[in-house]
């Protein structure tokens, strides 16, 4: 009996190894769906990014102008034709050209310091759609009041913060509208686990999570299943 069990296990290992090691063909064959050379999209998507505008950040004007770009991007997600990656990429590039006037100006990152990197890193780690307004406005106020930064650095950071918060908002809205149940669930799990396993020097959340296994894992799974099904509100 023991011999049979070990034979079964060895068979399982061989099967698993062979299946996973099967190399997937990286090159995708482009589908024969013809894509028009000029994209003409009329989106009915309604974003409401005005609440993100901070009067102290001059770059927020570009964030509002990005509305048109992301409204067209949302159409690409909606249209099943663009589930083909190559078609999507081509359409995306065309949209970038079409909306070149609606996008942010290029940001000069020459002599980008570690201090600036830390400020942006802190922002991106703690930013979620729930607290986007509070976190970004606090970050912008801190940047403006920071005496360690030169004027050029402040302008650069404000531009990056503005770009990040508006992109994050638009992408989150599109995700909420068009993502599948599994993608929404995965998004929720990653967000919650990122909070628990954050590299913040406090090991307690990680310890409580691991000590509470499997209840904590199942509970988180159910919470995210609920959120993916019924939304946050």
């Amino acid at each position: 009996m023991k011999k049979n069990f070990f034979n079964a296990v060895i068979l399982l290992i061989v099967l698993g190894t062979s299946v996973i090691s099967c190399t997937k063909d990286e090159t995708q064959v482009q589908t024969q769906v013809s894509s028009t050379s000029v994209i003409s999209l009329k989106s009915t998507m309604i974003f409401e990014p005005e609440f993100l505008v901070n009067k102290d950040n001059p770059y927020d004007v570009y964030g509002l102008k990005m509305y048109a770009f992301y409204a067209d991007i949302s159409i690409l997600f909606q249209d099943s034709i663009y589930s083909d990656y190559l078609l999507f990429e081509r359409a995306y590039k065309e949209l970038l050209i079409k909306h070149s006037n609606n996008l942010y100006p290029s940001i000069d990152t020459a002599s980008y310091s570690e201090y600036e990197s830390k400020i942006i890193s802190n922002l991106t780690t703690n930013l979620f759609i729930k607290n986007i307004k509070e976190i970004t406005q606090k970050c912008e106020s801190d940047i403006i009041a920071d005496r360690n930064l030169t004027n050029a650095q402040k302008q650069r950071l404000l531009a990056i913060v503005s770009l990040y918060k508006f992109s994050y908002y638009y992408q989150s809205e599109i995700m909420l509208m068009y993502a599948t149940w599994e993608e929404r669930h995965h998004d929720c799990m990653v967000r919650e686990l990122n909070t628990i396993f954050a590299d913040d020097g406090n090991p307690l959340p990680e310890m409580f999570f691991i000590a509470g296994c499997p209840e904590t894992v199942i509970q988180l799974n159910l919470v995210c299943a609920w959120e993916a099904t019924f939304g946050i509100d």
């Binding site: 990653v190 686990l193 990680e206 296994c213």
Partner: peptide, 20 residues
Amino acid sequence: MFFLIALFFALKDYPGKDLI
């Protein structure tokens, strides 16, 4: 149980998979 959870975390590429 921890091995199963670790496999689940690795499969889904969740944060904390290494620690688990």
